[in-house]
Simulated assay, not measured.
Amino acid sequence: MPQQQTRNPEPGGQLDWWATAPLPAPGAGQVPVPAPVAPTEFVPGPAAEFVPVPGRQFVPGPEPVPATDSSIEVYRAVQRSAAFQRIRHSYRTFVFPVSGVFLAWYLFYVAAQAAAPALMRRPVAGPVNVAWLLGLLQFATTFLLAWLYARNARTKRDRAALSLRWDTQDQLR
């Protein structure tokens, strides 16, 4: 494990744990490509570290396949399909109204702070005043909307989107 830096580096210097080989000046040749690294495994414990896995070698993954005209046409056909349009419609009919309501609720809170400070200072219970209560309700509303979005996605869109995804991948094979 690298040692922690105990002093500031000189001006223009690098910290120990960030130190890398300097890049050559432009036009001084190509930057060398680092050699492949052996796969490592995390070993938990007091001296937690990554150690090489014996008997395994680094195998680079496959090169990315460039998109062909046929795959582009498959995705365009999916985008024009009725199933995809239903999924997008379901998404939009939930997200846009809910976002608008939440934005209006937030702007109401900000406007109330600016326009009615006396009302916002009115105590509700002990040291909690109207401003604190509305501020805490902003957090509650955020969590409620996140839960509603996840439930809406799970019940109305996820199954249809997964089916469309499998159909698309079958067409690409």
Rank of each mutant, 00 (worst) to 15 (best):
M1C: 08
P2K: 13
Q3W: 15
Q3M: 09
Q5T: 06
T6P: 02
R7A: 13
N8T: 12
N8H: 15
E10S: 10
P11W: 00
D16C: 15
D16G: 14
W18C: 03
T20Y: 13
A21Q: 10
L23C: 09
A25H: 11
G29K: 05
V31C: 10
G45N: 04
P46A: 14
P46D: 11
A47T: 06
A48Q: 06
E49W: 03
F50G: 02
F50R: 12
V51T: 03
P54D: 11
P54L: 09
R56P: 00
F58C: 02
F58Y: 12
F58H: 00
V59I: 08
P60K: 07
G61Y: 03
P64W: 08
D69I: 05
D69Y: 15
S70C: 03
I72Q: 11
I72R: 08
V74M: 10
R76N: 14
V78S: 01
V78L: 12
Q79M: 14
Q85D: 15
R86W: 10
H89C: 14
H89G: 10
S90R: 13
Y91T: 07
R92M: 14
F94W: 05
V95W: 13
V95M: 13
V98A: 07
F102S: 10
Y106M: 14
F108C: 07
V110K: 13
A111I: 13
P117C: 06
R121L: 11
R122Y: 04
V124R: 09
V124C: 04
P127R: 09
V128C: 05
V130K: 06
L134Y: 09
L137N: 11
Q138A: 04
L145Q: 10
W147N: 14
W147I: 09
L148H: 11
Y149G: 03
A150E: 12
R154L: 07
R159A: 12
A160F: 00
A161I: 05
L162A: 15
W166A: 12
D167M: 06
T168N: 10
T168E: 15
D170L: 10
R173V: 15
R173C: 13
